[in-house]
Amino acid sequence: MAFSEADIPDLTGKIAIVTAKGGNSGIGKQTVAVLAAKGAKVYLGARSHDKYIEAVADIHASYPSTKASHIEFLEIDLASAAGAKSSAKRFKSKEKHLHLLYNNAGVMGTPQGMLSSDGYEYARVPYTQPHSEPAANMSILKQWAVNVFGTFVFTYHLLPVILSTVEISPPGSVRIVNTSSDGARQAPKSGIPLDDKTVGSSAGRFERYGISKIGVILLTRQFAQRYPAVLSFAPHPGPVQSNLTRELGIPWPIMWILNRVVFKPVQYGALTQLFAGTASQLGEKHNGSYLVPPAKLETRLPHLQCYNDDVGAKVWEWNVAAMKAAGAD
């Protein structure tokens, strides 16, 4: 039987985060709406309070029952390592527990050479171990900075509260959901160029997007292996009507056609990650899995490197080293 929103259990007493850029639009906003409608207290990640207010108004209009729910604002910008750490710290000052973390932030197709916004892209650390540490004076491209590195820093600093929640929760109920994509298959055959100080500046914009999504899948598998009491998943939402394509410069008449012929409603895209975060049939044996719409497990990963947990360990080490280099450890 197909999974639907009706299959999501009552989430009263649960605390969730859904990160921006998705928290205030697209499948992120839809995820917030459904979690809140099911009784969860949800922290909606957004860059500004105005975007939060706008999103909540939309959510209340679509799901009137959420007017009685708690949807809180969490200021966040994952393009900044310091910002990601600060956001985690801000959350921990408010809450002692976290049951569901939806790392839904993402950018796609950013122009070549577009860097993260706050100057972190120049990470200064000795480059002594190729393939595992960032080079001195590195320029981290924005897709990698937001989709992989910022997400890692944010999650890393939330781990203490996540793990403390595990201790008081039923097995398998505390979860990390990292929005992934089959766009990983657009990466070069060689995969993530960790020995390149720019992490792929010579690649095309879609190749760079693919590189970042391999990183998401590999880190999800690492979280599952390193913290097995927490279920971690990497769902692919499918082609969805959202603002993820904003960097591509597609003329609006073409987007109008695509939104009616190719891209599906946000409810379709959010369903798979809602399944990942709430379905009781997902357990320890599924930890680290990749999922595809409509709400199902998928054993075929979108790029050969996604199976390589040795590379995954190096991606983990790279992120830890870059985090320290940014002073965000």
Rank of each mutant, 00 (worst) to 15 (best):
S4N: 10
D7G: 08
G23R: 08
I27D: 05
V34Q: 01
D50T: 10
I53C: 10
D58P: 09
I59R: 06
T66A: 10
H70I: 05
E75W: 05
L78M: 15
A79V: 04
G83R: 01
S86A: 15
K96F: 05
L98P: 02
N104E: 03
G106W: 14
M108A: 09
Y120L: 05
R124H: 12
R124A: 02
T128R: 13
H131M: 12
S164W: 05
V177D: 07
D182G: 05
I192M: 12
D195Q: 14
S202R: 12
K213Y: 10
A229T: 02
L231V: 05
L231C: 05
P239D: 13
Q241P: 02
N243I: 06
L244N: 08
T245Y: 08
I250D: 11
M255K: 08
M255R: 11
W256M: 12
V261Y: 10
P265L: 10
V266F: 02
Y268K: 06
G269R: 07
G269C: 09
A276E: 07
G277F: 04
T278F: 06
G283P: 01
V292G: 01
P293G: 02
A295E: 05
K296T: 00
L297H: 03
L297G: 01
G312P: 01
W316E: 01
A321F: 04
A322C: 09
M323K: 00
